[in-house]
Design a binder for these strands. Structure first.
Lengths: 223, 223
DNA sequence: TTGTGTATATTTACTGGTCGGTATACATGG
DNA sequence: CCATGTATACCGACCAGTAAATATACACAA
């Protein structure tokens, strides 16, 4: 995005190959578990070359997450749009696709969350800022999507989806049981359906969304 | 719980002091970020003594989480019982108390989840098994509590609560914004209220819980 | 075309320090 | 004496980061 950097082999810059190697290793093994020597070896370069392209390991970690930001968001959008049906079903589609992905043996949870958990003692770390921004982008996309559908509490609903999503990342990683993602998807679909302006398929009620009052009072976004 | 081990100073066995020091350090800094030398120093002993009491660092990590199991569960139960009102409010009380705790500057998320995230590349690690068992105990307690209240889908509801809880751990740790826990509490309360056998304060419907059908089909626990 | 300067890119070899874990000896209390 | 602890000193491996030399590419001048 900033430095042009010339080609070295077929199509890949050296920097890209370093980030690709770092991404694989950091995601598979963890940040502190992987040394820069290992990254350099996997990228087919020497450690000194790595330090020519990155000022420090922390910068490399940040580049790893930076590189996952857009692809991840695109994947979620794709899962949403690729699921037929009404809004609740489309939201649930994200969770069901994620459950399928989580059953792959190499799946190890959400790289952003795992990095933030591992570096929790360094709150200002650039990688954590990138992770926070990533999740905020996702939440904003959800909120806009809900708002376009005419949902009143789109803000809070988006936050709830994020909580269920990240909760399923954590729980599935711990138990290695992807069915929790289907549970989360069901809960998400139910919350979305309850927030829809049109009473869904349930017997119609007088007021469209009478249950919104309770929560909005406990959650007026302190900051 | 297993070895009696004699006292060394006032009231504490050496082993307990080691575990206490390890707990503080591992929670505050992370597992791989803390060396055994640091733990030994903080416990006021030498490293060799640490290795007299624990076969390996992995054992020490397991002991750290083992020691947090019962106190953590007791705290959740206490928060639940200490909140007045009906079931949804009591469940929400857990989240509100947790939000208060999360605003403490030394709060760093859930030690069980953070350990599982950091050791995700070692699925069989004893500490991860302890963490999984801990979360299962909490989920079981929730399920039994819901079942006693006459809720039909107590199993799934308990899983949803766990997802919201662990989701809020992850999200609040990333954003350092405890208000997400209040959002999670509101969502939890709403889901519990919707599952109650008695239609809550909303206008009565013909069937007590008509919305259960959608989710039960998507979540029949594959394992 | 040839030579030279310069910025980019990469190498080998190495630094001081920390990692988990241990060998050996010494203390102390039953 | 012997079991239980504790202390000093050390191990090889690995850690993040660096020095110095060099290879490569391109610009511009003779």
């Amino acid at each position: 995005m900033s430095a042009p950097s010339p080609k070295t082999r077929e199509g890949n810059t050296t920097r890209e190959r370093i980030v690709a190697a770092a991404a694989k290793l950091f995601y598979a093994e963890g940040i502190r578990a992987v040394g820069v020597d290992t990254v350099a070896e996997k990228a087919g370069i020497t450690k000194r070359t790595l330090y020519y392209h990155f000022r420090s390991k922390d910068d490399l970690v940040a580049a790893y997450l930076e590189g996952r930001d857009q692809p991840n968001l695109a994947l979620f959008r794709q899962w949403f749009e690729g699921t037929p049906g009404a809004l609740p079903a489309k939201v649930e589609g994200i969770f069901l696709n994620l459950a399928r992905a989580a059953r792959h043996p190499k799946w190890k949870g959400c790289g952003f969350l795992r990095t933030s958990a591992e570096l929790a003692n360094l709150p200002g770390h650039p990688a954590i800022k990138i992770g926070a921004a990533h999740k905020k982008k996702f939440e904003r996309w959800l909120r806009d999507t809900f708002a376009e559908a005419g949902i009143a509490g789109a803000d809070e609903l988006a936050r709830q989806m994020l909580l269920l999503l990240d909760g399923s990342f954590a729980v599935v990683l711990l138990h290695r049981d992807a069915s929790y993602m289907e549970t989360a998807g069901a809960a998400a679909a139910r919350l979305v359906a309850a927030a829809l302006p049109h009473p869904v398929s349930v017997a119609r009620t007088k007021r469209p969304t009478p249950r919104t009052g309770r929560a909005s009072q406990a959650n007026s976004a302190p900051r």
